[in-house]
């Protein structure tokens, strides 16, 4: 890798880091001016709504299966339903994810066996 490419890599890395860091400083300065008891209220309402929406958007992006054919989508549906049901029952983080991956995997294998491609 040439020196210029190394410099480009460092610029991209530094820029990405600052994108993550500078907004923290901005918000921390804003919070400092507030009463410690009302730190959450110091957050602008639009920002408080945008947080969960970003998570929802990342969920939407990640829903597209690696193989986006009918079997991939069907397996995704099974996996999501399993995740949701286990979450409803346990309200935990790890178990629903494990169950979702397991059911997704079983669905991929079974659909592949029942309807082989070609």
């Amino acid at each position: 890798m040439s020196l210029s490419l190394w410099l480009g890599l460092l610029a991209a890395a530094l820029g990405t880091y600052l994108i993550r860091l500078l907004p923290l400083w901005w918000m921390q300065r804003r919070l400092k001016r507030r009463d410690p008891q009302s730190r959450v209220d110091a957050m602008p309402e639009w920002l408080a709504v945008l947080g969960p929406m970003m998570i929802a958007a990342v969920l939407g992006v990640s829903l597209v299966p690696k193989t986006a054919d009918a079997s991939g989508w069907l397996a995704t549906l099974f996996g999501l339903v399993a995740t949701w049901l286990v979450w409803r029952r346990t309200r935990s983080l790890g178990l629903p994810v494990a169950a979702g991956v397991a059911i997704f995997g079983v669905a991929i294998v079974m659909i592949g066996a029942l309807f082989p491609p070609g």
Binding site: S4, L5, L7, G8, A11, A12, G15, T16, I19, R20, L21, L22, P23, L24, W26, M27, Q28, L31, R39, V40, A42, M43, L47, A48, L50, G51, M54
Partner: peptide, 27 residues
């Protein structure tokens, strides 16, 4: 061009600007 590769990298990562302020009240 290298500047374009860097600019596109940063543009893609720009979505991260809202993350830290959302966490700040609990840090």
């Amino acid at each position: 061009p290298l500047w374009l590769a860097v600019a596109m990298t940063l543009l893609i990562n720009l979505r991260h600007v809202v993350y830290a302020p959302n966490l700040a009240p609990w840090l």
